[in-house]
Amino acid sequence: MRTFKIALAQIYPRLGDLEANLQKHLEVIEDAVARGADLVVFPELSLTGYVLQDLTYEVAVPLDPTHPILRPLLEASMRADLVVGLVEIDERGRYYTAGLYLSQGRLIHRHRKIYLPTYGMFDEGRDMAPGDQVQAFDTRFGRFGLLICEDFWHISPPYLLWLDGAEVLILTSASPGRGLGIPGKLGSAQWVELVNQAYASLFTVFVVHVNRAGFEDGQNFWGGSTIFDPNGERILQGPYFDEALLLASIDLDQIRRTRIRLPLLRDERPALVIRELQRILNR
């Protein structure tokens, strides 16, 4: 299936309330499926809320398919593939900001957030451990990559996913509004959209960004979810600040057409990059 319909679930999670957020996920999935969605993408920490602090330890979920939070989502993934966000606890009691890709009742891929911001208003490194892996993965639609918020603002993770064959880069975030951009737009929204468009153009892939909405601890999350195509054209734009369920069709064959015109992947030289990185590290 090279053409599929994707739904961007720009929701307002309830801080620390797993049960309420699970119910919201299931309702949104039902609505998206009724509208023909093949894949539903939720934002960063969609099942828990973002400003967790000490709540982190109360809402963490082990990746056990029988867990009462995961089991209903795995069942729902029989109707549409899902990307959901949560706090994962591993077998050694470490906590991660994680994104899960669920399909046909199975966990297909788990990404642990690599870059944990600890500047300005952010202090994620206090409670979370950083992930240490960047891998693309195969879905029933094509090969995808999944990153979480700060991961995308470093060029190396999307670059690695591109080299690993990802045709769609999925970015989930809980990005609060900061600064001033062009008239009528937040600085943070303007910057994120420029970065997403740049990656779509440079890597000739689809870039899907789902940002949450709502308020927590004085922070206003700006929404504004987008999809950019391999030509860098914006094909979907969500509203700022409000909840929304947005749908668009993606034709992965567009990637082939774009890369015939612009063969950047063909001409990339990863061996040169490895050699020069080693030189820099050895200085």
Rank of each mutant, 00 (worst) to 15 (best):
P62M: 07
V33R: 09
V41G: 09
L52N: 10
L47T: 01
V59S: 05
V51C: 12
G49P: 11
E44G: 08
D38N: 00
G49A: 07
E30Q: 14
P43E: 00
R35W: 02
V40Y: 12
A32K: 00
L47H: 12
Y50N: 15
D54Y: 13
P43T: 04
L55V: 04
V59G: 09
D54I: 11
Y50D: 08
A60H: 07
F42D: 10
F42C: 08
R35D: 02
G49D: 12
E44Y: 09
G49K: 07
L63S: 06
P62V: 04
G36K: 07
E58V: 10
Q53H: 12
A37H: 01
L39W: 13
V40K: 15
S46F: 09
S46Y: 10
A60C: 11
E44Q: 14
D38E: 15
L47P: 08
A32E: 06
L39Y: 10
T56L: 09
V59Q: 01
E44R: 11
F42S: 05
V51T: 11
G36S: 01
V41N: 13
E58N: 15
F42V: 06
L52F: 02
V33N: 06
R35K: 09
T48V: 05
L47D: 08
V40P: 02
T56E: 05
E44S: 00
A37S: 10
G49I: 06
D38R: 04
L63W: 09
P62Q: 01
Y50P: 01
F42G: 10
Y57T: 08
P43S: 08
P62G: 03
V40I: 07
L47I: 03
V41L: 12
A34I: 00
T56P: 00
A34C: 01
Q53K: 15
A60D: 08
P62A: 06
Q53P: 00
L47S: 10
L39P: 04
L39R: 11
A37T: 09
D31Y: 03
P62D: 10
V51E: 13
V61H: 03
A34R: 15
L45I: 15
D31M: 03
G36W: 11
L39K: 07
V51L: 11
L52H: 06
D38W: 03
D31C: 01
V59E: 01
E44C: 02
P62Y: 07
P43R: 09
P62E: 15
D54H: 10
A60M: 03
L45T: 05
A32Y: 06
P62W: 10
A34S: 14
D38Q: 13
A60P: 05
L55E: 10
V40R: 05
V33L: 13
T48G: 10
E44A: 09
Q53F: 15
Q53M: 08
V51H: 14
E58S: 13
V61F: 07
E30G: 02
G36D: 03
L45W: 13
L45E: 06
V61S: 09
Q53A: 06
D31V: 11
Y50V: 14
E44I: 00
V41C: 10
V59Y: 05
